[in-house]
Write a protein that binds this DNA or RNA. Sequence first.
DNA 1: CGCGACGTTGATTTGCCTCAACGATTGTGG
DNA 2: CCACAATCGTTGAGGCAAATCAACGTCGCG
Lengths: 189, 189
Amino acid sequence: MQNLLEHIDKFVSLDESEKELLLSRISYVEARKKQFLLEAGKPGYKLFFVLKGCLRLYLITPKGNEQTHQFVIENWWMTDYLAFHNDSVSGFYVQAVERSEVAVLQKSDMDFLLEKIPKLERYFRLCYQKAVGAAQKRISYLFSLSAEERFHNMNDKFPEFVQRVPQYMLASYLDFSAEFLSKIRAGKV
Amino acid sequence: MQNLLEHIDKFVSLDESEKELLLSRISYVEARKKQFLLEAGKPGYKLFFVLKGCLRLYLITPKGNEQTHQFVIENWWMTDYLAFHNDSVSGFYVQAVERSEVAVLQKSDMDFLLEKIPKLERYFRLCYQKAVGAAQKRISYLFSLSAEERFHNMNDKFPEFVQRVPQYMLASYLDFSAEFLSKIRAGKV
DNA sequence: CGCGACGTTGATTTGCCTCAACGATTGTGG
DNA sequence: CCACAATCGTTGAGGCAAATCAACGTCGCG
């Protein structure tokens, strides 16, 4: 949990009793590779923070394909935010890409903590501000680059990522087929 | 500005002196149709709230096409959040789709207000939480639906929108060409 | 060792783009 | 208030990026 405290500390400073209170309301989960933390169709009242490892958020399209929406590594929060915001059922799966250590915050606990430690409003406001920016950036890549350009852009900017996740997940994240990714890598396109 | 106060009031309650302070740091702009509020390449330190009318956020791709990222109508905030967050230059244009009344908040004023009225942290945290959810939903539509399905989905869920904005903007929002939208409407596809 | 998950390759198909030319509608200055 | 331009929308022909399908390697693991 040290990672989480350090991350919070970058934005707001908590005293010892506040840290204690915080930790008393956050649980710790170790997820095996491919294990689900959240499933579509189930209530989405949890927020996940990656302490170690890698998670992905994905959905199954009406046609039955997996579409990876987001990968997150150390020091990012993730969930289906619409479900979280509206207390509704999740439309997404959250799954461990590799063995991961995760902090889990229930919405009710979040509300409790925000009540008791108003400074955390600021922390989450800043996290979300960054997340909205990241989402805008993501859409702009999907919009303005061709499939091949999206792959090369990813490879240039996040090479360790391209190593770390299976190709079929990466392909669905970049919004093209696994076969096509294979051809791009082979230079056959 | 009444709209803005009412919107804030849905999430947190401010007393009269706080409202006064808030309004003293927010400016009001009337934008003509097609007028720019923010331009790519210029500093992105402003946040916009639509009191009346409609704004769009778009970028120009390397190939020279307009790609509309987002439309916002009454009671939504908008800007290039990455530029706003990092105090950098905007990658997007913000333009009035129709004659609009807009509240403008400079980042420095936002920081000042958040300092003086910590309750506003909560307000923005909730606005952003909703915005992240909306962005996730948007990506999921782009991912999982065909061009024609995206149009019909839009038409079903936001018919007034489809009326309100020019077709070429709508087409770029749905990520296909204006010509193709024309063909979908004519049932020629 | 054998099975299932993952990756590769080529042939074929298709959804949507591009380009070009032409209507319709809106706006503007004479 | 009309003429004309600019903006916006329509239509069709042709082309291409990427999907789909199918078959076959390969690796890791129970």
